[in-house]
Write a protein that binds this DNA or RNA. Structure first.
Lengths: 342, 342
DNA sequence: CTGTTAGCGCGTTCAA
DNA sequence: TTGAACGCGCTAACAG
């Protein structure tokens, strides 16, 4: 491995001079600067980030931890975070917790041991609290994305889940639906809780009865086993005319289950959900959704993170909370029951 | 920051003993081990990965560099790579080059300076050669994914692009199509070249004329500006009856352009492409595609990488090349011109 | 079973 | 404008 000492030797200067050339610090004569630069090129020198971070006590690297790298919501969010990070001159690394608290812990370990300067994190669930406490304890600035964690205050970017649920339910009722079921993520995840609450309130507001057996609590991640959904559908009698899905993955699973039974959307069942399906939803668009501003989640979150990092540590600044509105995109997955169209 | 010296002091042992406890090396009495462990917990010790890597000269971290984090092909690939990396006890970090050689260079810098133990990389294009040469020069093992780079031999996982193109063209001809156009990625990207060649050969094999103006070379990444596609469509007279897209992103762009003109798929134009659209393609599936085994790309690539890393450096092992077959999934985006169904 | 010494590659501090 | 000494946190090698 080529070190600054190798360069120093070849250039006939001290290692310190080389260091100064690399970092553009101090005063260096143009002549020695040139000489050092040439030697660096010749030897193919690459700075050792570890040695550097070790003495500087900072890594200049930020970390983004998402829960599902195959979900377009998170990948779009990642692009936003990336753009913002680059804009501020930080490197960004990604991790994928797969909605699993254990994998999240592994990444947390990576984050802590590599001394990332800051973290943007979509927590796997309420159990992430201990992870966040570890970050706080070690003074690693972080910004929460998409999900709150009870017991932990911090900067955060949230979607307006309640209002989103309201929009979905009202769209359904406006088209004549009354028996509206909901499939949702785990109640260990704040966004799932808020969406359920929004659904509940909207049902009440529309004088529709909230029925326990119309609710299925499962998880936001893709499952291979659809039997839980099947059992849930079976026990609803009479069957609902519409289903609200807590996110895009669940909507896809529901539709797959339905179509395995020969049921079609929207003819036999209407389905709506949170989050769009990515760029690919634009062709032959089926699903009516409440789309969140995924890119903004990442971009604004990263901005908050960088601000937080650059604040003087001793200076107390209150936590910021950004709530991004969700926008309904009406497509063809909802039947109009009002005019006999089915 | 808590160091092993702090723990050593509190526990009344030497730093070396603490180090041994942390790494489970050497023989330690249960009593001191317990004592050290307790102190570590009490003080909230977190190992400093940088200091560790600095002396060990290895980071135990692997890197996956993809070109489009919003493309389901790459995110599924990422899941495969991640699973394999974890299986072998490595941490995996992700980067997204966005098909841009400059961003790739930035990540390469990160990889080099952080001393990643190995890299899985989907190169942005032929210009990535210098980046790969840098990796080779610094003895960072790498495995290429999805794309070859002329002038650089290495382990690699490829899709059978030529055969994929053949399958698509033959599917179209079997349904009576003769004027088949192709929109493709940059010829700076090997997979685009291979797909074009496969298309060309398949056209010839089916006695169809290869027409220069039926080919549009653009890029695999999502563009906001669709005017290039519009201009291309305009200058084809007579219009083709089918379009082969070099990847999923291009297919989506073509379909968006078509539908902006009121043209429908497959009634007015048939469209097929490489790569599936992710889990979300399973609902209301439109596009007929040649699906690549994305997960396997990542999983097998990672296996090769780990093997390469663990090989004794002095021992010469020939490069391995895995070619994964592509499988056609027939859906509804191709009109059957044979029986007047149009 | 445990401790001492030395050094990984770099930047800060002070001196020249 | 340049250099020498020191230390960041950790572990390999050796000594006991």
């Amino acid at each position: 491995m080529v070190t600054i000492y190798d360069i120093a030797a070849k250039a006939g200067v001290s290692a310190m001079t080389v260091s100064r050339v690399i970092n553009n610090t101090g005063k260096i004569s143009d002549k020695t600067r040139m000489k050092v630069r040439r030697m660096m090129d010749e030897l193919g020198y690459v700075p050792n980030h570890m040695a550097r971070s070790l003495v500087l006590q900072q890594s200049n690297m930020l970390f983004l931890l998402i829960t599902d790298i195959t979900n377009p919501f998170y990948t779009t969010l990642a692009r936003g975070a990336e753009d913002a990070a680059n804009k501020y001159g930080y490197r960004l690394l990604f991790g994928n917790s797969d909605e699993k608290i254990d994998k999240e812990l592994d990444y947390l370990d990576t984050i802590l041991t590599t001394r990332a300067d800051g973290v943007l994190i979509a927590p796997a669930g309420d159990a992430s609290l201990s992870h966040l406490e570890a970050l706080r304890k070690h003074r690693v600035p972080f910004v929460l994305l998409d999900r709150e964690v009870p017991g932990m205050e911090s900067d955060i970017v949230l979607g307006d889940s309640k209002d989103g649920a309201r929009q979905l339910v009202e769209h359904l009722t406006s088209r004549g639906h009354q028996r509206i079921a909901m499939i949702n993520g785990s109640r260990q995840v704040s966004s799932a809780r808020m969406r359920l609450e929004g659904y509940r309130e909207a049902m009440k507001l529309n004088d529709l009865s909230y029925q326990e057996h119309h609710i299925l609590e499962t998880t936001f991640e893709l499952q291979n086993d659809l039997s839980i959904i099947e059992a849930w559908l079976d026990q609803m009698d009479p069957a609902p005319t519409a289903i609200v899905a807590g996110n895009n993955v669940l909507a896809v699973e529901v539709i797959r289950t339905l179509s395995a039974r020969g049921l079609r959307v929207p003819e036999d069942m209407s389905v709506v959900c949170f989050d769009d399906l990515g760029p690919y939803s634009e062709i032959d668009p089926l699903l009516t959704v409440v789309a969140q501003q995924a890119y903004q989640f990442g971009y604004l979150g990263m901005q908050m993170l960088v601000e937080r990092i650059q604040i003087n540590k001793d200076f107390i600044v209150p936590w910021k909370k950004i709530i991004l509105p969700a926008n309904m995109i009406i497509r063809r997955s909802v039947a109009n029951l009002n005019d006999g169209t089915e």
